[in-house]
Design a protein around this nucleic acid. Structure first.
Lengths: 227, 227
DNA sequence: GCAAGGAGTGAACCACGGTTCAATCCAACG
DNA sequence: CGTTGGATTGAACCGTGGTTCACTCCTTGC
């Protein structure tokens, strides 16, 4: 508020900006981007509509930033999990799939918003990048697995896309806004099913060697008995 | 136009209605549902905006009908191809995948509109049914294959969803409005890749017995040498 | 106190495309 | 011909939600 702009004013301004972002994020997590109107965001901060525009060029940019931050958080978790999973391509891909699905099932509204909700082109551009990240990570893992002979020969990029598609589509029924929340038991079954599906698709060999032997996976390329 | 409503007037009215539907469909096929504004539809029939509303309750219903008809046509083709494919579950699923992908790659704009374009809730409801059809057909085929021992034990519904997701996601990069048209060679590669991926995921056994042995598929659940 | 000027306000504005409806047209009947 | 009434017209209307901007508020420096 003084003449010279800089002081702790800077901090206050940043806090305010952050407040708007956090408010928007909360709204998105609860009811999707659709619900994050400028009026709702402002109201949640006990601020006026106009003040939002002194911190953001437009609603689109604000929402794009919300998307980037929320998606970035998911990405970090996945990246971390994949990094901690060791060398085995199958283990790394398993982590990718499980963390991705687990997070989606845990935060269904947000997952739906990030993955499926219709959004403006500006936000859609963020989404494209976001999806691309997963496809890239998947491709890298699959390429490694291919080189190591863990997977059956195939186009890594195509396979990665297909994996992401399979995961997304298997999830969408469970995270749609009007769908009922799946029980923990169901969640486990879905996640296991997805992983098994993808592992088979990639042609994972000697699963027992990769994992403890118990666990979710029941991939038996040739014999296949009932669990 | 006479007092008594029925005559060949009936036919004329139906023709007109059909004209609007066809016009809308052409617009959708060219630029998606977004482009099918009431004004554009009317203009294409040299009619006025208002006249559209004497044949349809609302734009949404009109577009829903367009969706249903376009999607219905696709469904017929798939149903037919699957029926002609014989008993083998793997063959039937192969047809489903190949016809679906082939059609999408041949009519990219329409495929994008039907599968991915953001649409109003009313049209989205049609889409849900449309996707459901494919998932149902897939599930039935997979169940049959499971019973016959053609596929490895798994949840048929989940697997069907995953297959449709894998197919869709593998295609989306090629049918996005701003993507370049893939060459025939690329199209073949994509379709083969998708089918192989899905077959492996399902754990198709003794492929050579199902098919001629040549062709695209190169599924080797255990041995898998380099091509 | 008082002037300065940045921050905040919120009602008005705008864009957009679907929807309406009073006016008009016109083929068919007597 | 004159009348009838369904078909057609298209300009005006509306709902929605993002965006603007003239005005107020309030802290700071003198």
């Amino acid at each position: 508020m003084p003449y010279r702009p800089t002081a702790l004013t800077r901090k206050n301004a940043e806090d305010k900006r952050d407040g708007f972002l956090r408010a928007a994020r909360t709204l998105v997590a609860a009811d999707g981007f659709r619900a994050a109107t400028v009026a709702a965001i402002a109201a949640r901060c006990q601020a006026s509509v106009g003040s939002v525009y002194s911190y953001f060029d437009s609603r689109d940019r604000l929402l794009a930033e919300v998307f980037r931050s929320a998606a970035g958080h998911e990405i970090d978790l996945v990246r971390e999990a994949v990094a901690d999973a060791g060398q085995q391509a199958s283990q790394r891909l398993g982590e990718l799939i499980r963390i991705f699905s687990g997070r989606a099932l845990a935060g269904r509204r947000m997952a739906w918003a990030l993955l499926f909700e219709p959004v403006s082109p500006v936000v859609e551009a963020e989404r494209l990048e976001y999806r691309r990240f997963y496809t890239d990570v998947g491709e890298r893992i699959i390429s490694d697995g291919l080189a190591a002979g863990t997977f059956v020969p195939q186009d890594a990029r195509l396979a990665s896309s297909a994996v992401m598609g399979a995961v997304s589509e298997a999830l969408v029924g469970w995270i749609r806004p009007d769908s009922a929340e799946p029980s923990a038991e169901e969640q486990r079954r879905v996640m296991d099913g997805i992983q098994d599906f993808c592992f088979r698709a990639l042609g994972v060999r000697d699963l027992a060697a990769s994992f403890g032997g118990g666990g979710a996976t029941s991939v038996q390329p040739r014999t296949g008995g009932r669990p």
